[in-house]
Design a protein around this nucleic acid. Structure first.
Lengths: 371, 371
DNA sequence: ATGAAAGCGCTAACAG
DNA sequence: CTGTTAGCGCTTTCAT
C-alpha cells in the first residue's frame, strides 16, 4: 500500500484481497437476488442511505463502526463495484494521465513511460498512452483530450508535439501538462530534461581525448531544441580543441530506429571515395538506437569499431551493454525523467496555481568499448 | 479519416483543423463573454435547446442545415468541448480499452501494443496501459477496472494474468476481454496467438538440419502454457531426430531480459568442466531479448557464434537483424497479433453475445547467421 | 425539425 | 452519526 494521497483508495477495503474480490464477483454473477447494482441498491439492501454507503466506500471516518461493517459485508457478498463513470462526472476528474510518446517501440521512451506509470499508479491515476507517431492523420490536437476531460493532465515526450504545444501555451496557459526531454524554459511550461548541450560536449570531448579528430555527428531533426543543443555541444567541443567542423559530417535524421542509423553510417563512410584520412574516425549518434544501427552499418561496410571508427551513443538503454562492442554512451536517468515528469504534473493538478519548476537531471558518460 | 464505426466522431466537425481548434480555444480563454462552458450554455447562446446542440455534436441528421450551422459557428467561436465525463456516464461506456503487459520495455510487447493502439484509435477508443510487472503489490485484480467501468474491455498480454483470469472466467464469463499470446482454448476466452508447439519444433528442426545435436533450451517460466508448448515442440523435434533430451540443458527463467539470457548461456556452457563434447553446440531461446543476451554471454565466455554454438531466438524483433551475428529466429506477426486482439475485443463489445473465435496467426522461421 | 424533461450513479452540502 | 436532496453535463425518449 502506498502512503501517498489516494482519495478513493479504500473502496472494498484493504482486507479484500483480489481473490476475495473474485469470489464475491462470482457470487454476484451466480445471481443470488443480491446483485451488485448501484450504490442505491446496496443502500436499500443494507437499510441505510446512499450517503452512508458512499462514505464507507470513500473511507470517511464519520460512520459508526457497526454500520460500516454492515455496508462492507453487503459490498463484499454482492460484489458491488463503484461506477467510476459516475464518480468521475461528479468529482469532475478522470484520474487519467495522458502520455504522448513519439514511438514507444524505442526502449528509451519505454523506460520513461514506466517511470510515469509507476508514480501515477502510486497516486491513484492510470495512464492513457498515445503513440503520436502512430496516426499520420495528425488528427485533432491531443490536448483536446484535456479539454474534453478525458484526462486530467498530460506529459509530452514527443518533441514535435512539445514545440507545437509550447506555442499554443502562450494563448491557453491553463492546460495542465509537462514537457519531458524536449523543453523550452522560455515557454513557461513545466519540464524535466537534461543538459543536452553539456552532455553532447562531454561525449565529443571523450572522443577527442581518445585521439579522434574526424568526428561525425548523426543527429535527430534539427527543428527540435534538443537536437540543436546537442549539435551546439558537439560544435563547442570541436571548437575548444581547435578542430574545424565539417558540415558534410553532420547528418540529420527524422527517424531514430536501427536501420536509419545503419544507413546513415554507411553513407557517411562512403562519402567521396578513396583516402582513409578523408573519412570520419568517430561517430557521435544522439540516440543509442541510432548508435546500435551505426555499429551494425559500419560492420556491414567492413569497418572495425572502435579501431577504424569509434562510436558514442546517447541514452544508455539496456541494450547498449549487450552489443559488440559494448556502447560508450551518455546515460540519461530515464526512469527518473518519467517519475519526475509525473510528480510535476501531479503537483500542478493538486494546486493549479502552484509554481511548478523546470528541472534538469544529471547525465553521465558511460565508457565501454566502442569509444 | 477512418471509415469504421465511430459514434462520436463529428464533434466540431471535420472542417475544424487542429489549428482552428487551438485558435478557438484561444478565443475562449481570452474571455469574451462567450465562454465554452456546458452544452446548456452553448444552447442558450444560440437560442436552441440542448437536445439540438447534442444532435449537431453527434452528427445526427435530423437538424435543419441553418440551425446546424448556427450551432457549429457558436461551438467554433466559443471553443466549446464536449465533457466526455458526462457523455460517458450517460452512454455507460468509457471508450477505453485496457491493455495489460508484463513488461513494455520488451520490444516484442511494444510492437503488439502499437497494433492494439492503432486499431483502437481507428474505432474511437483510447488505450489504458498497465504494466502488470510494475507493481509488486499485485494490487486488486486488473479486471476490476472493467467492473468499475473504467474500461470497456481488456486485452491481456501477461501470461500470469491470463492464467489467473482464465480460471476466474469460469465463474464470471461476462467480462469482455481477450487473451493475446498466452491463451487456453479450453477457457472459453477469445484469444489470438501462434502455434507455439509448431514454431518451437521448426526452430529446433532447423538446428538439427544444420548438424547440431547437443541443443539446449532457454525457456520462460514453465507454468505458462506457451512455455510448455515450446518445450514440447523442442522435445518433439529432438525425438523425431532420435536425439536424447538432456534435462540439464533445459533452463527456465522468469525474466526475459538481456542479462538473464547472458547469464543463462554462461551457466549452461560452464556446466561440469572439460570436454567440449559434453557442452551444447546450440541454444534455442524462446525470446529474442533472451537470445541477444545469449549471444553476448557466449561471446563473453569466449565462444563463437555460430561456429561453437548456434543460437536461435523467437519473435523477430527489429533488433534481431542488427546484432552480430544477425539472429536466426522465429518471426511472430507482432503487429497483427495486436491488431487482431483489438478487433476481437471490439467485436465482442459491439455484440456481447457474438461468438468470438480464437485465432492462430502464422509464424515463420527467419534464417540469418546465428544458426 | 425542435423542445421539455428524465435520468445515468455518484458525491457533498445541509439538516437533523 | 445518518438521511435528504441537489446537481455534475450529457443523451435520449416523447411530445409537439
Amino acid at each position: 500500500m502506498t502512503t501517498t494521497a489516494q482519495p478513493h483508495a479504500s473502496q472494498a477495503d484493504p482486507a479484500a484481497s483480489a481473490e476475495a474480490a473474485e469470489a464475491a464477483a462470482q457470487a454476484a454473477a451466480a445471481g443470488g437476488d443480491a446483485r451488485g447494482g448501484s450504490i442505491a441498491a446496496v443502500a436499500r439492501r443494507v437499510g441505510v442511505s446512499v450517503a452512508t454507503v458512499s462514505r464507507v466506500l470513500n473511507g470517511h471516518t464519520n460512520v459508526r463502526a457497526a454500520t460500516r461493517a454492515r455496508v462492507l459485508a453487503e459490498v463484499e457478498t454482492s460484489g458491488y463495484r463503484v461506477n467510476e463513470l459516475a464518480r468521475n462526472l461528479r468529482t469532475a476528474e478522470s484520474r487519467l494521465l495522458l502520455t504522448m510518446v513519439p514511438d514507444f517501440g524505442n526502449p528509451f521512451y519505454a523506460e520513461i513511460v514506466r517511470g510515469i506509470d509507476s508514480v501515477a499508479r502510486q497516486h491513484g491515476y492510470f495512464m492513457l498512452l498515445c503513440d503520436t507517431g502512430a496516426d499520420a492523420g495528425r488528427e485533432r490536437s491531443y490536448f483536446d483530450l484535456l479539454r474534453r476531460h478525458r484526462a486530467d493532465g498530460a506529459i509530452c515526450l514527443d518533441p514535435a508535439t512539445v514545440q507545437q504545444a509550447n506555442r499554443a501555451a502562450a494563448h491557453e496557459p491553463a492546460l495542465p501538462w509537462v514537457a519531458c526531454c524536449e523543453f523550452d524554459p522560455a515557454a513557461g511550461v513545466p519540464y524535466v530534461g537534461i543538459d543536452n548541450f553539456g552532455a553532447a560536449r562531454d561525449a565529443v570531448r571523450h572522443l577527442i581525448a581518445r585521439g579522434r579528430r574526424r568526428i561525425a555527428l548523426i543527429n535527430s531533426d534539427d527543428h527540435y531544441l534538443y537536437a540543436q543543443q546537442r549539435r551546439d555541444g558537439y560544435l563547442a567541443a570541436l571548437a575548444e580543441a581547435g578542430i574545424e567542423a565539417r558540415a558534410a559530417w553532420r547528418v540529420n535524421l527524422n527517424c531514430l530506429d536501427y536501420d536509419a542509423g545503419a544507413q546513415a553510417a554507411a553513407a557517411l563512410m562512403a562519402q567521396r571515395g578513396g583516402a582513409r584520412a578523408a573519412k570520419p574516425d568517430a561517430i557521435f549518434a544522439v540516440s543509442d538506437t541510432l548508435a546500435v544501427g551505426v555499429v551494425n552499418g559500419l560492420r556491414g561496410s567492413g569497418w572495425a569499431v572502435p579501431d577504424d571508427v569509434a562510436v558514442v551513443g546517447f541514452d544508455d538503454i539496456a541494450l547498449a551493454a549487450q552489443i559488440d562492442p559494448p556502447l560508450t554512451t551518455i546515460a540519461q536517468p530515464m526512469r527518473e525523467l518519467g517519475e519526475t515528469a509525473a510528480r510535476l504534473l501531479l503537483k500542478r493538478l493538486a494546486d493549479p496555481r502552484a509554481n511548478v519548476p523546470g528541472v534538469l537531471l544529471p547525465h553521465r558518460l558511460v565508457v565501454r568499448r566502442s569509444a
